[in-house]
């Protein structure tokens, strides 16, 4: 916003009311951009607490109880949940790319599918917690695993709520923007805000999927 006025000389003319609307819009778009990146930063520190816990307890191996041999969560379910989530994020990324080319229906289908796949990933992770062959307090590894999954699922549910509101809004307003480029093309303030929100969500969803992959490596490869 600050580059909009040259203030090195005498006082410039006041900002007219309609220009204030433009400032408000650019502020709203910037806020969505900054907010989503900051959200990723905050979530990274939360996830880092679990990663630190993983390596700290692993290196201490108190009483030889970091990870007893027989304790393994289901590789099939864990891998499926991770792959489904990654697929959902990539599909949505592709859908947004198609939206930018004016293919609104493609994005809607991709978004609704990504929503469904996200729910499936959540379901798989919750189901996995009910099929464990160890108790939460039976080792350091067990604690980290049982502790991490609900956190990831909660953040994922938050992301899915975000996607649901975007899809619902785009469906509700599609008639108003029909013939004007629909969501992908309309140049109204609200359409611009909605696209910025979509872009921000895209980042966050991909981020969550990558975190899922990183912890999959911790739990199933490094363990």
């Amino acid at each position: 916003m600050t580059d909009l006025a040259d203030v090195t000389g005498a006082a410039p003319p006041p900002i007219p009311p309609d220009a204030e609307e433009g400032l408000a819009l650019s502020a709203a778009i910037g806020s969505i951009w900054t907010g989503s990146r900051l959200l990723i930063g905050a979530c990274s520190f939360l996830y880092a607490a679990f990663a630190f816990t993983f390596f700290y307890l692993r290196s201490l191996n108190s009483h030889g109880l970091w990870h007893p041999e027989e304790q393994h969560p289901s590789l099939l379910i864990g891998t499926s949940a991770t792959v489904v989530l990654l697929g959902a994020a990539l599909l949505h990324y592709y859908g947004v790319w198609r939206l930018r080319n004016g293919l609104n229906l493609d994005w809607r289908v991709a978004a609704i599918t990504a929503l469904g796949l996200g729910v499936l990933s959540v379901g798989l992770q919750v189901y996995q917690l009910t099929r464990l062959n160890f108790y939460p307090g039976s080792s350091g590894y067990a604690s980290v695993f049982v502790g991490w999954v609900p956190v990831h699922v909660t953040l994922l549910l938050g992301a899915l709520y975000w996607l649901e509101t975007l899809v619902a809004r785009s469906l509700r307003v599609r008639n108003a923007w029909r013939g004007r480029g629909d969501l992908g093309g309309a140049v109204t303030p609200e359409a611009t805000r909605l696209r910025a929100s979509l872009d921000a969500f895209n980042y966050f969803y991909i981020y969550l999927a990558l975190v899922g992959v990183a912890f999959w490596f911790l739990f199933y490869v490094i363990d």
Partner: peptide, 30 residues
Amino acid sequence: ATPVLFGGLYMLAMDRTVQTSFFTDTLGGS
């Protein structure tokens, strides 16, 4: 910084409720 505290408090709550062992040395925690 606060998300790390939140994570720690969550682990403490888990230790006190579902009996994880994040902070119990004899069960693989610290």
